[in-house]
Design a protein around this nucleic acid. Sequence first.
DNA 1: TTGATTAGACTGGACTGACTAGTTTGATTA
DNA 2: TAATCAAACTAGTCAGTCCAGTCTAATCAA
Lengths: 210, 210
Amino acid sequence: MSNGAETRIRRSREKILAAAEEVFLHHGFLGANMDSVADKAGVSKQTVYAHCKSKEALFVLVVERMTGGAAKDIGEDVEDDFEGLSAERFFLEAATDQLIVVMTPRLMRLRRMVIGEVERFPDLGRSLHDNGAGRSIARYARAIGHYTKTGELHCDDPYSAATHFNWLVMGGPTNAAMFLGDAGIPSNADLKDHARECVRIFLAAFSECA
Amino acid sequence: MSNGAETRIRRSREKILAAAEEVFLHHGFLGANMDSVADKAGVSKQTVYAHCKSKEALFVLVVERMTGGAAKDIGEDVEDDFEGLSAERFFLEAATDQLIVVMTPRLMRLRRMVIGEVERFPDLGRSLHDNGAGRSIARYARAIGHYTKTGELHCDDPYSAATHFNWLVMGGPTNAAMFLGDAGIPSNADLKDHARECVRIFLAAFSECA
DNA sequence: TTGATTAGACTGGACTGACTAGTTTGATTA
DNA sequence: TAATCAAACTAGTCAGTCCAGTCTAATCAA
């Protein structure tokens, strides 16, 4: 097993996955065509099949690579440090970041595609569910727990409150992007205004009123 | 053109649309197969093509029939009469109704299918967008306008507030149903609890605090 | 250092087998 | 007599395989 061969493999693997991503994202699973994946990758069909044994396998590979990458971009696994950060500041920044990272054509296409194929690939649906909203909600829940302890918020069930906040923020923009295509994705300025109003609503409902 | 022939046409049309609905809803546009539509309708393939000129046309017909029907079920076009109804009662009932009518396997399948085909059928996406969330939001906006006049609510922009309320209510359950399939649809009891908490949050954010 | 050898990744394109949208035909039914 | 039927048919697509030969780069021989 020589070193040069390995980099060669990695290179064509990379080209194949990039090409497959583009083809699947534009045509869906059934609409995509392995010949055009090979063409777009600048590689023979044989090579595509040397790297993954079937169209299904390639599809799963592509989706998993994209969800893994997205999770890394948002960086929701880092434990936040809330010291010296007001609840308002934290939630405004977190919501804005989440909106701007998630509401991109590429991720919205991924979302549409996986939703359309949930029946055929239920595991991918589960994966997007858990790695998408699931992580954001967990992060919000930790924050709500913290700010409840400091007394800035008042909340019995941080997880439930986090879920409500998450969908208050993400529901509308996501829905528009699902049904209206890339044209339905709001501008960053609109997303920021939206985040601000969501935080206002959330704080009004969960701040100590006394 | 005899009368008997007309009812005959209507009957097979009905059977074909019902069969097509089932086939498309389970397999999507590309995965569906016109032979199985004909079989399931108990009709020859020829008859299917006598009623609509192509697979695309049949698909559009099926989706439009379903969205039209759903809109009627929710009955969001009736002008509500708010007299003698507190804001809390109104929003709780409206949200609960909306959740229970919308969160059904059939409509969630429709939603998944249309989202997956938005690129191929952008008009259907637009139609679901406007007839789905669009109508609910318009209804909520009218209510918010009313309760702002009575002083029960405090709100500068009823349409924006209505949008936030709508997604606070629908975002989470819808997302779960999109990614987890029919198993992700919450029970009616859960939906009711959810609606109650959403109304609490909404009223906290938009009630006069003075 | 240079030139031959070799393993295995890669190519291009033909091929198989299965599937399917839509049409045609000629008989049947209500 | 118009709608319907069954079934064969056309024409095209596409996943996956096969094959015969090429390219790359590491290793070894001179």
